[in-house]
């Protein structure tokens, strides 16, 4: 079979048509969210729908910010950042132990810990809720945050894989100099792990920012609500103006969108890193 130039060109053309069609599908909900968020309540319900808002209803955004207000943003940011920092500490330490400390039955414990990833979250959801009730942590930041810190198996795995690939000679030299494990961990393991820490931080922040099920179970008062909870409530309220609602969705997506545009490389590398075999 010969590959004639004409055939090759038409093949490339077909490839681009397919790829652009797919890209439009990926992009379309974003386009519609933005367009709707800038329509007046009159134009939102116009049929056939208009492709661009006219006039542009900027006021939807201040109206939306009255719903997803600073407090909600603060809660989401506080929730996500606290989890990134505390779980980061827990999982880097755990990863170091599994990679660099030769303790008895290490591999057995590691596999056991890793296998907890396969437990469906629904299994631990109810008893974890009851534990939080007994601790008196319902409707509190600690109730919201601490149980999520326990979901560190994946992070521990990620850090272990990275620490295993650091040069052995370095650790031998440090041991000869009399550096204990903590010094090895703190003085050069962590500083050398910036790429994996960044990747971990972005993925964990993203996961926490999107989280809905656990907050919906633990949080009762408005003061503690995170973004997905408020978005879900607005969406369920049929009398809520759709333009304002889309503006609220847009506001909730905006911080991550900016993060994605600025640090796109780390998003991709971070997720790609999870797929590396050890």
């Amino acid at each position: 079979m010969t590959d004639s130039p004409a055939r090759r060109v038409s093949g490339k053309l077909a490839l681009f048509i397919v790829l652009i069609a797919g890209a439009l599908i990926a992009l379309f909900p974003f386009y519609w969210m933005i367009v709707t968020s800038l329509k007046t309540s009159l134009e939102v319900y116009r049929y056939p729908p208009t492709w661009l808002p006219n006039p542009i209803a900027w006021s939807n955004y201040p109206d939306a910010f009255a719903k997803v207000n600073g407090r909600v943003f603060f809660n989401s940011a506080f929730f996500a950042i606290t989890i990134v920092v505390l779980q980061g500490l827990v999982t880097t330490m755990g990863g170091f132990a599994f990679a660099r400390i030769n303790f008895p039955y290490r591999n057995f414990f590691f596999i056991l810990y890793l296998s907890t990833l396969m437990i469906p979250p629904q299994v631990t959801l109810i008893p974890t809720f009851l534990v939080v009730v007994r601790l008196g942590w319902i409707d509190s930041y600690q109730g919201l945050i601490v149980p999520i810190l326990a979901q560190g198996a994946f992070g521990t795995f990620l850090f272990r894989q990275f620490f295993l690939r650091l040069p052995n000679e370095m650790y031998e030299a440090a041991r000869l100099d009399g550096a204990n494990y903590w010094q090895q961990f703190w003085k050069f393991t962590l500083p050398l792990s910036r790429p994996v820490i960044t990747a971990y931080a972005i993925i964990t922040f993203l996961t926490a920012w999107k989280m809905y099920l656990w907050p919906v179970i633990v949080v009762r008062s408005d003061d503690l609500k995170v973004l997905p909870m408020v978005i879900a409530e607005l969406s369920a309220n049929t009398s809520q103006d759709r333009g304002v609602m889309m503006a609220a969705v847009g506001l909730s997506v905006l911080p991550i969108l900016i993060l994605y545009l600025v640090a796109q490389r780390w998003f991709i590398e971070g997720i790609a890193m999870t797929g590396q075999k050890g």
Binding site: G22, A23, A26, L27, P29, F30, W32, M33, T36, L206, W209, K210, M211, Y212, L227, P228, I231, A232, L234, S235, R242, M245, M246, V249, S252, V253, I256, L257, L259, Y260, Q264, F267, I268, I271
Partner: peptide, 21 residues
């Protein structure tokens, strides 16, 4: 970059938009 864009949305935010679609 365009294909990967939906990872910025939470399932809740995406569902709110799709409900409208």
């Amino acid at each position: 970059m365009i294909y990967i864009l939906p990872i910025v949305t939470s399932p809740v935010a995406a569902a709110a938009v799709w409900k409208w679609l």
